[in-house]
């Protein structure tokens, strides 16, 4: 069996690929429900209802889509330059830590100033970690795929150390810090929901990334760097600087994911801030074809999946863990389908 490139593939094949992968994921999930003896129709409709069925659930979906949008944008920025960072998870945690520490030390400042400082510190924390991996790559040729994964673990253990030591609340049962100082939180925009201003920042960021990629010299250099590092060198672009610049930007976006979760949802540091949001962001970005605006849409879809999973578990008792498998299936079928949009499998000897 061999893969043969089709040169005259029609433009709509890309859309066929997306539709086919979503359909395939739906079918496989339904099959999974069926063969594990769960009510297929009830479970799926509860999931849909929980995700988009009412204003409250839609807003909750958008709340869950917020960090995913940030980590997906972080992925888009890096992968467009063909820098394969998997460090969004660690950068997210680093952003949460640095933003929290900044807020705790700036308590008492006027609210607008405090909010800005907290957000900025969160972005900077993520950016610093990203730039470090970029520096390790350009100075020591340390592969970024592996180094970023290593730092995901190192930062996670750093966070648990902070929560058992320096930032620990006295007599607390759970591993968690004190709450953020007054004025450093993003309050709900709609009463009785968790929907906070972080989503608006996420929308703004996806616009900014889009403009950055399409309309600025930096974006052009980045994409050129992705095509060919030799060409960028001939053009006089310093590839090392570009490398850690892109990693810093990617890290800053992931850092925003962390600090907005702390400011808008958790209100304090704990070990559940991420729970895989960094890794899921990579999948969102890939399914969005590394397009920043599409990333927003796919993030809402994936946020809906997670949110719908909760409703499904409450209403039908079907374990919500299935949504992670579904996300994996979506990406796998998307990768396969987008391959098959440009290539055909031929049986050859």
């Amino acid at each position: 069996m061999r893969l043969v490139q089709v040169n005259d593939a029609a433009w709509w094949w890309d859309w066929v690929a997306i539709a086919a992968s979503l359909l395939l994921a739906l079918l496989l999930t339904a099959a999974l429900f069926h063969y594990s003896g769960q009510p297929v129709q009830e479970a799926l409709s509860a999931m849909l209802d929980g995700a988009f069925g009412s204003t409250e659930s839609l807003l909750e979906t958008l709340t869950r889509a917020t960090p995913l949008t940030f980590t997906a944008l972080a992925t888009v920025v890096a992968y467009r330059a063909r820098i394969w960072s998997i460090g969004q998870e660690g950068q997210l945690l680093m952003g949460a830590i640095s933003g929290y520490v900044a807020a705790a030390n700036c308590a008492g400042l006027p609210t607008p100033l405090l909010l800005t400082a907290t957000l900025l510190a969160g972005a900077l924390g993520g950016a610093a970690l990203g730039a470090l991996c970029g520096y390790l790559k350009s100075r020591f040729a340390v592969d970024e795929i592996i180094s970023t994964v290593m730092f995901n673990y190192i930062v996670y253990y750093f966070l648990t150390w902070l929560l058992t030591g320096p930032l620990r609340v006295k007599h607390a049962v759970y591993l968690q810090s004190d709450v953020l100082p007054v004025g450093a939180t993003l309050p709900p925009l709609v009463a009785d929901t968790r929907f906070h201003a972080g989503f608006l920042i996420a929308i703004a960021c996806s616009g900014v990334v889009q403009v950055l990629l399409k309309r600025t010299a930096f974006g052009f250099e980045m994409r050129a760097f992705g095509f060919s590092q030799t060409v960028t060198r001939f053009k006089g672009i310093r590839s090392e600087r570009l490398f850690w610049g892109v990693m810093a930007l990617s890290g800053a976006l992931a850092g925003l994911a962390g600090i907005t979760e702390v400011m808008g949802v958790h209100g304090r540091l704990n070990t559940d801030i991420s729970a895989g949001l960094g890794y899921t962001g990579i999948i969102v970005a890939m399914v969005a074809g590394l397009n920043p605006l599409a990333a927003l849409v796919v993030a809402v879809l994936f946020g809906g999946l997670v949110n719908g999973g909760f409703m499904m578990q409450v209403l039908t008792g079907v374990p919500k863990a299935i949504v992670f498998a579904t996300q994996g299936i979506v990406l796998l079928s998307f990768l396969a389908c987008s391959r098959l949009a440009r290539y055909r499998l031929r049986w050859t000897r």
């Binding site: 895989g276 999948i283 863990a321 994996g328 796998l332």
Partner: peptide
């Protein structure tokens, strides 16, 4: 299919850990 190896690996990660938990 010659898909990107590390992305495919990550997808397998989500799929298999989700399946296990489920």
């Amino acid at each position: 299919l010659r898909t990107e190896q590390f992305v495919t690996g990550l997808a397998i990660n989500l799929l298999a850990s989700g399946l296990t938990l489920y």
